[in-house]
């Protein structure tokens, strides 16, 4: 099994943490109870799980533009993931991560990142070099 995964250059600082992964999509507005720090959308595969301080691994970003401000607000309250890894990010998540200085990466060349990483694994995310190391 590969322990070093390559992706496009991302945004944010180098971080280390525990993976929370699902083959599902993401919107801060549609899917989260941001006060409690959990996924709240009943249909979401991570419903009920806390995303706070996790390395969140999901398929694509979805939905509306609100996530950009919301990521900043979540980070300011320290109720945010440490990083988000997507197969493909949309513009909003990248823009929000840029304002919040939240680590975000996407476009992994080794395949579907939601299959390559499992919940509970520990990883280091190095966005400036486009690398994710499985510890």
């Amino acid at each position: 099994m590969k322990t070093l995964l390559k992706c496009h250059i991302g945004i944010g600082k180098k971080v280390q943490g525990e993976v929370l992964s699902a083959n599902d999509n993401f919107s801060a507005r549609y899917d989260l109870d941001r006060l409690k720090g959990i996924f709240s959308r009943p249909q979401h595969k991570l419903v009920g799980k806390s995303y706070v301080d996790k390395i969140l691994v999901l398929n694509e970003s979805k939905g509306g533009v609100a996530s950009a401000w919301m990521l900043y607000e979540m980070c300011a309250r320290k109720m945010a993931p440490k990083a988000i890894l997507f197969n493909k990010a949309n513009t909003i998540l990248a823009q929000g991560a840029s304002l919040a200085n939240l680590t975000i990466c996407d476009r992994f060349i080794d395949g579907d990142i939601t299959s390559l990483l499992s919940s509970g694994q520990r990883v280091t995310v190095d966005p400036m070099n486009g690398l994710v190391s499985i510890l």
Partner: peptide, 8 residues
């Protein structure tokens, strides 16, 4: 236009 979130 792209989706431009509030900050952008």
């Amino acid at each position: 236009s792209n989706y431009e979130g509030g900050p952008s």
